[in-house]
């Protein structure tokens, strides 16, 4: 076999976006099984366990790559982080603004109060009802994000939806903490 004098051009770039890293289209809608499979295929090639006998340079690169793949995977598989990342790719820092519609804030203040009461009263039934309501709301925001980002490309609107999702996620985390206290 003939060898060339020119090294093969390397198309892969460490700074490419997370979607390209996994060979996925840049979109909110995600084929989770395909992401999982691509993640495992990548780690199977680059994980430090595959380089225990390699030289120091390859070991360092393997750690950097595996670190990067882990980070990208975590961002893509979580709806909130994925949407936030997509907006960042559009140059929008969704979390830099704190303007929220009044009716939304009122609803959340009601829920917060309810949560605090349920927490001190150790009222599991109320916690469960709250959790259900919050999950329904979170899902609604997620499908709205898919529409605003993938179909309408209305990024400012998507940023507002994302801020709402963050409020909801935070309350859900507090419900979780309340359950934990009761364990």
């Amino acid at each position: 076999m003939a060898t060339t004098n020119q090294p093969l051009a390397i198309v892969l770039d460490f700074s490419r976006d997370h979607f390209a890293l996994f060979g996925l289209p840049v979109a909110y809608a995600l084929d989770g099984a395909r992401l999982d499979q691509a993640y495992r295929d990548l780690q199977a090639q680059i994980h430090p366990d595959k380089f225990v006998h390699a030289g120091a340079a390859e070991q360092r690169l393997s750690m950097q790559w595996a670190t990067r793949v882990n980070e990208a995977y975590q961002i893509l598989r979580r709806p909130f982080d994925r949407a936030n990342y997509l907006l960042l790719l559009q140059g929008i820092q969704a979390m830099n603004s704190s303007v929220m519609p009044m009716d939304f804030l009122e609803q959340h203040m009601d829920w917060s109060e309810e949560l605090a009461q349920a927490r001190s009263a150790r009222d599991v039934a109320t916690l469960e009802r709250l959790e259900r309501a919050l999950r329904i709301e979170a899902r609604a925001y997620q499908s709205r994000l898919a529409e605003e980002i993938d179909q309408r490309h209305d990024y400012p609107r998507a940023a507002e939806t994302l801020r709402k999702l963050r409020f909801t996620d935070k309350l859900l985390a507090e419900v979780g903490a309340a359950y934990e206290e009761m364990l």
């Binding site: 198309v11 892969l12 990548l42 090639q45």
Partner: peptide, 8 residues
């Protein structure tokens, strides 16, 4: 990395 993706 490229092989992993092609295989995928």
């Amino acid at each position: 990395v490229k092989q992993a993706l092609t295989g995928q």
